[in-house]
């Protein structure tokens, strides 16, 4: 055996993150095929996966799944390193930061719907901020800001209800308190 062999042990956690990221990529690619009336508004179904991972495995696993989803779906959709990819990255980072701040709150006080709506609006605000400062500086975005934030509010609500439904079913089958 050559001494320079690099051994990369694959832990169970790695396989889990890879599988969950694959689910998120599947949702992201599937929703890219849905025709939508306004560019920039989409359901954001992959965030359902992010939130479930956040509840079950913690923030760092959610961050891994999100990062892998952004890069892998960009490679699949051919938008890697384009402005679309940078927008996606900015939205992902800002929503993860919001989730990092909010996940410390008691789950009895703030549930998945609140987390989902706040993360979606942070996502949208970061993207519009990027458009206003980098992509199209000087254009009046104030007029369309409520439309985009309203879309984020609605998709965040729907995704949050889906997450609440899925995690509630999970907790009723597995009687254990979330750490």
């Amino acid at each position: 055996m050559t001494p320079s062999t690099i051994d990369l042990p694959v832990r169970a956690q790695d396989r889990r993150i890879a599988a969950l990221a694959a689910a998120a990529v599947g949702l992201a690619v599937a929703e890219a095929a849905i025709p939508l009336p306004v560019p920039g508004i989409k359901p954001g179904l992959a965030n359902i996966v992010t939130l479930i991972v956040l509840y079950r495995y913690g923030w760092s696993a959610a961050a891994w799944v999100t990062a892998l989803r952004i890069v892998a779906s960009a490679l699949l959709l051919g938008t890697f390193l384009t402005p679309t990819f940078v927008m996606s990255l900015a939205g992902g980072i800002s929503s993860l930061l919001v989730l990092a701040a909010l996940v410390r709150l008691s789950p009895a006080w703030l549930g998945p719907v609140g987390l989902s709506v706040l993360a979606a609006m942070a996502h949208m605000a970061a993207q519009l901020g990027l458009v206003a400062t980098w992509l199209m500086p000087g254009t009046g975005l104030w007029g369309i800001l409520p439309v985009f934030l309203g879309a984020a509010w609605l998709t965040g609500l729907v995704n949050g209800l889906v997450v609440a439904h899925l995690t509630a079913r999970q907790h009723s089958t597995r009687k254990e308190s979330p750490s």
């Binding site: 703030l110 719907v113 609140g114 709506v117 706040l118």
Partner: peptide, 14 residues
């Protein structure tokens, strides 16, 4: 029971 107090607050403020 899907909506907690904070959720309703977030939805209203948003």
């Amino acid at each position: 029971g899907a909506l907690r107090l904070g959720d309703i607050l977030v939805l209203g403020l948003g």
